[in-house]
Design a protein around this nucleic acid. Structure first.
Lengths: 337, 337
DNA sequence: CTGAAAGCGCTTACAG
DNA sequence: CTGAAAGCGCTTACAG
């Protein structure tokens, strides 16, 4: 039924070894022979069996994309760009969802789910503990971490601390003095987590300007969704009605904050200002002021680093992209007293 | 280095055939023998080579997810749920991006990219022309279409015409008489495309109520993003400043419409009302009135249909989910004249 | 530049 | 219930 390499070999009058080499563009095949093989392959409509060639060569030509939740914009956008970069290079993208809830009973990464299936992995925004790192190591393929940084691995991301500081400075410049923060879950084991570093950026900037940065201004959520941002904002404003501005660690949380503020009968950008971090595609119609990160570029860059590693360049690399303030309508000066 | 089935066979004192059967839970293995094999496998940390077993069995245990653009919420949300459903059943998810721009030079689906790599495919919101259908057929695996309907294949989606009609009736009930429409690209070759059917739902509802439904009220875009919705709304309102309500074929377009209306100094839900279709997660903080579809359920349902097909149940199935109106703040009565 | 042959690590009739 | 052996369809030293 399906045509095999042997059929091509027979038709072109050479051995299967030569067909294999010719079709893959390996050196050491005569120009004339190569031509013949191509014609035969085309005439028969030959497509090599990927699983047979994987078994023989030990390479799968696919990359694992480990991430917490595709339905969130940041992840899906990185994935989309990574996938296209991989496909252009002839690699398939295998997505693997691993919830990023940090509870004690959380699901951990298991190498066996991916062993023998991928030539490299991208890990998005997931912190791996010692156990998971061991699993990753036993997978035996290069890994690049996006957004989160992991000791000993390549990394692409932004300077999260600076991003938060940038947002915070913008608010301070406008005159805000009581600035709340909506943060993601932090974990002592992972001081490099973006959520941790954004929180640090907020805190240190307030300190530098001699402004209050007590814990009562910080409200943490488990996962950084709009609805969690909404709930967190209500808790924050219940406790600290004197807050005049909120820095949310993600745009989706910021949008939830905006909703909460409006529902309380307050004006956004007037009574309470809101700034996010991300540069979400829907931030524009939303009117959301934010510190944007180049998300698509991170997807492409991460894929390129992974591709290089697959091709033998195992040097540990770090790619950090700059962020930029986008002013829209959710931030204004603090209300006059 | 890696442990093979032979190592397990040797340690447990049986043949590789028996190990293979025992580990996969096939019948015809003695309880005692099975136990021995499990222990040996565990002791050695054995994980079967997926590519070897694929080559031998002809099954890959992975499913292709063909879709236009993961960075858009609808697709990524369907994918996320499908992926989890597949993984729970022991299948990997291979994503494959295929832009849904319908230009003459568009990239077409090629079977060879996926042949031998998947046991089934999900196709999201992509219309396949005759050529692509032939490619899909030559792939030789079952396919289920989500959102778009394809002759001869299983399908999961909503009643797009009814969804648009539902939105339209809501506007009419409030007293709107001049209702614009933001539609996706339509294609004569594909009368079952959601965009086409939503447009039909809009048009027929207006006709039923004896309201204007001329082409000058309909503005089409290539892909249904917020920024295209924004541009389309400006074109529509330039041409027809008398429009008091807009039905957008997607929530993202609706958000763009809201932005455009505000920028023109008009009030949303006052001067011009906007209703979307989708039930986007961010519609809530946005305050967007919409006709929601159960997106996650569609992802799960599509995956289940595909899984059944892989397991031999090739009957063509159709799963249609109901939609529901969600009233928020972007729709109000038309302005008093 | 080219070929014969072993090998990748499983699964599956087939025979017992 | 179990095993010997062929077979899945390639790739890759090795030899020439």
């Amino acid at each position: 039924m399906t045509v095999r390499i042997e059929d091509v070999a027979r038709l072109s009058g050479v051995s299967t070894a030569t067909v294999s080499r010719a079709l893959r563009g390996l050196p050491g095949v005569g120009g004339r022979t190569r031509e013949l093989v191509f014609q035969a392959a085309k005439a028969l409509g030959y497509t090599p069996s990927p699983t047979a060639s994987s078994l023989a060569s030990g390479r799968t030509h696919s990359i694992g994309l480990i991430q917490p939740d595709m339905s969130r914009w940041f992840f899906s956008t990185v994935l989309e760009c990574a996938e296209q970069t991989f496909r252009r290079a002839g690699y398939d993208a295998l997505v693997y969802s691993l919830p990023d809830y940090l509870g004690p009973d959380r699901q951990r990464f298991k190498a066996r789910d991916l062993v023998g299936k991928v030539d490299a992995v991208l890990v998005l925004s997931l912190f791996f503990d010692r156990q998971e790192e061991a699993e990753l190591h036993s997978l035996g393929v290069p890994a690049v971490f996006v957004s989160v940084r992991q000791e000993g691995y390549s990394h692409v991301g932004i300077d999260d601390e600076q991003a938060a500081a940038q947002a915070c400075r913008h608010l301070i410049t406008l005159g805000h003095k009581t600035i709340g923060h909506l943060s993601g879950q932090t974990n002592d084991l992972c001081p490099f987590a973006p959520t941790q570093r954004r929180r640090d950026g907020w805190k240190q900037t307030l300190q530098r300007f001699n402004l209050e940065c007590s814990d009562s201004l910080d409200e943490a959520v488990t996962i950084m969704t709009a609805s969690n941002g909404y709930l967190a904002t209500n808790r924050l404003l219940d406790r600290r009605p004197d807050v005049t501005a909120i820095l949310a660690s993600s745009d989706e949380m910021a949008m939830g904050a905006v909703q909460a503020i409006r529902e309380r009968g307050l004006t956004v950008g007037g009574d309470v200002s809101v700034i996010g971090i991300d540069g979400h595609d829907l931030g524009r119609p939303f009117g959301l002021t934010t510190v944007a990160q180049p998300v698509r570029k991170q997807g492409v860059a991460a894929a390129e680093v992974a591709l290089k590693a697959v091709e033998g360049d195992l040097a540990q690399k770090t790619v950090i992209f700059p962020t930029s303030l986008i002013e829209r309508t959710t931030v204004g000066p603090p209300p006059a007293r």
